[in-house]
Structure formats: C-alpha cells, structure tokens
Write a protein that binds this DNA or RNA. Structure first.
Lengths: 234, 234
DNA sequence: CGCCCATTTGATGTTCTTCAAAAGGTGTGG
DNA sequence: CCACACCTTTTGAAGAACATCAAATGGGCG
C-alpha cells in the first residue's frame, strides 16, 4: 500500500435537505423542523484510498455515512492477526458504536477514494429522542449490522477456501447493478475470508482457469453468477 | 440428542416489577407508570434441554430474555451446513430481530433447561417510544449483539483449531465466577468454531493431555486460564 | 530504465478433514 | 440387575486442503 501523506480532506458542509442520496441515509426521516435544530454543521470529508478513517481505541464521537467509495472495518487479535469484519459502501453507516461506547472497536480504512459525512454523535442522540423515524432508522441500521456480521460468520468463515471466495464474489455481485465486481487486494481478500494471501490468489486463479470469472481490468471481475451459485449450492 | 416430547412448558405470568434479575434485563428502566400500561402479560416459559425455541423463518413476534440456562443461535447455509453464531445466557436478550423483521433469521435451541420471558414485540415497540431509558437499553443490546458477532469472526473463526478452542474456553471462563466452565457437545463445539466434531474432540484431548484443562465431570471443565491465555498470546 | 510492491507460482510440510472403527455412557426392557 | 441398543466421544489411518517459505513475474511510477 502506498503511503498517503494527506489522507483526508474537508470537502464542505453537507446540505442534508438536498442530499442526492437522502432517501437512503440515516437522516431520511428528518423533518424541516428537525433540520432547523441542527445547529452544528455536518462535515463532508473525502478520504484517499488507503487512508485510515479511525483506529481501534480512538475516541468515538462521530458516526459516518458513506456517500461514495468503499470502507473496511478491521479487528485485531492480540497476536497481531487482522481480520476484516465488514465492508461498507454507498449509503452505509458506520461508527454506530459511538452511540454507546467511548472508543471505536474497529479500525476503519478507505479501500478506494471515499466521501463521507460525519455526524456528531450528540446530534444524532438528541435528534433520535425527538424523532421516532430516526430512532427506527437507527434500529434498522443496528439490525443490518448484526445481519451482515452473521453472514460473515456463516458465509465467509465456514467451509473450503473456494466456497468462501465464491460466496464473497456472489455477495459483491449482488450489490452491483451488472455482474461486474470490483475487488481489492489479495491480501484484503485473505484477511476478509480468514485465509492467507497465497491461498486467496491461488483460488482466484483456479476460478479464472475454469472460466467462472474473468478479469478484464486489474481487480475488476466479471462473474458467471449462475454457475458460481451452483458451485456452492445456492 | 434425545427426542423431547414436551419441549416447552408455560411457567406463569412474569412479575417484572419484582423480577430477581430486574437490574440486568431489558425492562430495568421502566417506571411504575410504564408497568401500568403493560396490559398484556409477560409469559414465562421453560424449555427442556434440546428443545427448539424458534426456527429460521418462523414468524417473529416476541423477544426473549433468558432467566436461566443456555441458548444457541444457529444459521444454515443452503448446502445444509450449520454454524452456531451466538451463545446466550442469563440476562441475555435474543430474538431482537423481531423489532425489524417479519421472520427470525436464526434457529434458537436450548442447550440446557432454560427459563425465558417472552416479550411481545409490539409491547416493546410501544414502550420504547415512550421511555427513553428502554430505548437506550435496546440500543445497548444491539450494540452488544454486534460486538459479540465480531468476536465470533475474529476469535472463533480465525487461526488454528487449537487457538479457536482456547479462545472459546477463555471466553466461557470469563463469564463464570470461578474457573469452571460448562461445555456442551463436541458437535456443537465444532459447529461453533467452524471445525469438524473429530477435530474438536482431538483438540480438547490434546489440551487435557498437556494439562491445560481437566474434566472433573463430563462436559465440565477446569481451565488453567493463565497458561491458556499465554498459549494464544492474550 | 530500474525500483518497489503486489501478485503469482512452486515445493514442502503441517493441519484439518474424511472415513472407519472402537470405546464409553445412558436409558430401556427383559 | 443385566443385557442390549443407541448415541456420543474417542482414536486411528490416509488423503486433501491449506500454510509456509522462497523465488519468479509483472505492473506502476519516479
């Protein structure tokens, strides 16, 4: 990974009322009146690919909404082993733990250039008491986080290396409109699936040889989803 | 597992106001007034060891608080593979998904005789809008579920079989007062750690041989926690 | 062009799974 | 109370899958 000197840049003050992804974000349920109580501005920030957004143990004071890009959450074992526990993209919310905890439990890193909105936790707390739609939205986000974590356990941490890779490819394709699927480094692929970089690489190579995937551009894949699905019995 | 004809038995109507574990449960923040609005009674139910509490896809209409016992949540892959994604005990809440979803995403099974309180989801929903302490308590529970799921990924799904078993033993001892640690079947141990029954059994045998654990009674273990901790670098 | 880093590939060893069989425990019925 | 059946656990042997170490390849960038 290349060193990035200036990892983040302040992009401006968000105009939540006219946000292009407003339907999909946390504040979708806010009323004009709610917004009028929003005295503290919502920052918009851009992180370069590879930039650290926050570190495990950092003081947790803001939630993040992704406007564009891709973010990984990594958790470390005492022996230094890293495991990627979540992958976040457009409209996803992360750092929710700030609502409860003093510190972030993960390390958040931008995998591509990533635009986020930073929501101060006390703003969200205050609004969530007043606005029950926001409260529901928050619950939905928590629910979603648990559901995703559980998929990580069953789909990405169970079975053979090939099965795990295939399930991940299918999961990534799900989220794309077409059957393309942007991937990241082999090292991250391994850290996500609990495999070594080499095994991740070999498995991808095997899938290519057998024609289940092709790689028109580096790290961009075309998946034969029907046949991949058949491979893992989905 | 022995067939259980009568898996569940209604034990009575809960008296939440005078609950012995009241400090620790979801309703700890409720006021006298809140309780007076609680027209629908809270059922108390006992499940026999091995009894199914709910099944993946069942209509989700109640949350459960554990008064005593042990419950596993299992998730299934399309090919039939089962993976235990959570272990719940006294004062834990499960079935939270009922707040959002129509169906339970897991199968919940009692591992020992287990007493639960059943909280109708609409009761919790109504109360949570009126009582902000309950709302906070709910958020805390969600937070806890995510945190536990993440530990499952990093600690129980990463590294060698021995490391996983050791981390689980340490986790179970954490929750006990002494260094005893009740365990369940080897099959469940495997399903929890993403290993086969045989590997789980062999790993336990090896730990016994080396003196890290002893088994005074079947499925009850004494752990040499300091040395176990050293084994996995904690 | 040459350097740096990520990826790929190879060879080897370990770990885990698989299949199979034996041992141990528990409950039932004779 | 013993014998038998059934189920779980343990153990063994063989093979497959994955990790590890090492080296080669290839792409991007100064």
């Amino acid at each position: 990974m290349k060193r990035v000197e200036v990892g983040e840049a302040w992009t401006g003050v968000a105009d939540c009322r006219h946000c292009v992804i407003r339907d999909a974000v946390l504040f979708s349920g806010l009323t004009e009146e709610d917004f009028s109580h929003l005295h503290r501005p919502i920052d918009q920030i851009t992180y370069r690919a590879g930039a650290r957004i926050y570190d495990t143990g950092d003081q947790a004071a803001t939630l993040f909404t992704i406007r564009s890009g891709l973010v990984k959450l990594t958790q470390y074992l005492p022996d230094g082993t890293a495991r990627i526990v979540r992958l976040l993209r457009k409209t996803d919310l992360f750092g929710l733990e700030a609502m409860i905890d003093e510190e972030y439990p993960h390390t958040a890193t931008a995998l591509r250039d990533t635009e986020v909105c930073r929501l101060p936790v006390d703003v969200v707390r205050t609004l969530s008491h007043a606005n029950s739609r926001l409260f529901n939205e928050l619950m939905t986000r928590w629910h979603h986080a648990v559901g995703t974590a559980d998929r990580w356990i069953t789909e990405f941490s169970t079975g053979s290396a090939r099965d795990r890779v295939v399930r991940l490819l299918l999961w990534l394709s799900e989220k794309e409109d077409d059957e393309r699927c942007e991937l990241f480094s082999r090292e991250d692929l391994g850290a996500l699936l609990g495999l070594t970089t080499e095994t991740a690489s070999r498995t991808m190579a095997e899938l290519k040889r057998k024609g289940f995937i092709s790689e028109p551009r580096p790290n961009q894949f075309l998946c034969d989803t029907p046949n991949l699905r058949r491979l893992v019995g989905m």
